[in-house]
Design a protein around this nucleic acid. Structure first.
Lengths: 192, 192
DNA sequence: TCAGTCATGGCACGTCGTGTCATCACTATC
DNA sequence: GATAGTGATGACACGACGTGCCATGACTGA
């Protein structure tokens, strides 16, 4: 790094997001992205597996991060307790460093393109699998582990959406706790 | 229909599933599928939007079906009551006509290919959106509607997976009710 | 008999994503 | 300070995907 401008990956992410918002995902070609970033098409695919991945790079680290946090939690905590205690701080950690403005622009691009939404769902699915394994490692039975993992991810996903829709007004941990409370209320009161 | 062999769509689905299982999704080309079905490549894309869709055709009807069933349910039922009452029979209706053997083969193909799993997640997401709208139409507030929809779809998805893993042993409605019970138990007992 | 409809065939074409080799700055070692 | 190694990038070819467009031919209805 010196012969080439540093931060090629970041330049590609920036150019791609800009172009997706300007003219749409489908209408944006990889050569357009690389031209704006001052690189070639081949280099794009060295950094990202495919055109969609440019908006999700780095998220493959989240599952292992989640696994580590779960392993560090007190073994005495049951699944729902762990979610109640750990989901909010973990979510805050995941989004550290990313500005709200970036997250909103990224959200807009994903919402406008089903193919990108599809990829995002896969990322959440991988996160759920990591959580499920984490619960099993804590001695939780298979079905409960799977259910707890899905509840955690679903709560996380809904809370983040609401948080972004409100432009970050109540902060993310607060929104997560509100969402968790609503989830508890819903499942505990059949006649609601 | 007479000049051409009838059931072109079904032949394509059959050939595609067979080939995916024989040699993998990526290794299977669309011309291979159409050759086995006695058709041309162009015809494949008239029936299916893309290569993955050949395993999910017809599922776009599920959301409107769900919407209809929700509208017909007694308005007095709350979200969780509706799920408890309606999920099992609805699931049974969705799978009517599809043999267990077909479902198992389809499951194997999807599990072997992340791209297919991705598409399946999108189908569930669309189902969730339909449920969410259905709940809102019944007067449920936005957040509760979203949560209830996700809980219903998650339960459905997990139950179907377990049901297929057991080769259909306890029938699907029973498995769904077991899964729902486990979900209730999990969310109602913080110290589990 | 004839016009309309509709599923399919056939072809061209742009884009995606990969394999492969060349280039060249930086680094380590002697 | 010469030399070999490393690693990111450029350049090119290529197969597969997916679409636009027009032609074909069997069926339908007047």
């Amino acid at each position: 790094m010196g012969r080439w401008q540093p931060g090629a990956r970041e330049r590609l992410e920036q150019a791609a997001l800009d172009l997706f918002l300007e003219q749409g995902f489908t209408e944006t070609t990889v050569p357009q992205i690389t031209a704006r970033a001052g690189l070639t098409t081949r280099t794009f695919f060295r950094h990202f597996a495919d055109k969609r991945e440019v908006l999700f790079a780095g998220e493959e680290l989240v599952p292992e991060r989640v696994a580590r946090l779960m392993a560090e939690a007190p073994p005495s905590l049951g699944p729902m307790e762990l979610i109640t205690e750990g989901l909010a701080p973990t979510a805050a950690e995941i989004f550290e460093g990313r500005g709200l403005d970036y997250l909103l622009r990224r959200r807009a691009a994903i919402d406008a393109e089903p193919a990108l939404h599809e990829r995002e769902l896969r990322k959440f699915s991988l996160m759920s699998e990591a959580l499920e394994q984490g619960f099993r490692d804590r001695g939780v039975d298979d079905l409960t582990a799977q259910l707890a993992a899905e509840i955690a991810v679903t709560t996380f996903r809904i809370a983040v959406t609401r948080w972004l829709n409100q432009h970050g007004d109540p902060d993310l941990p607060a929104t997560i706790n509100q969402t968790l409370a609503a989830m508890r209320h819903l499942t505990n009161t059949p006649s609601t």
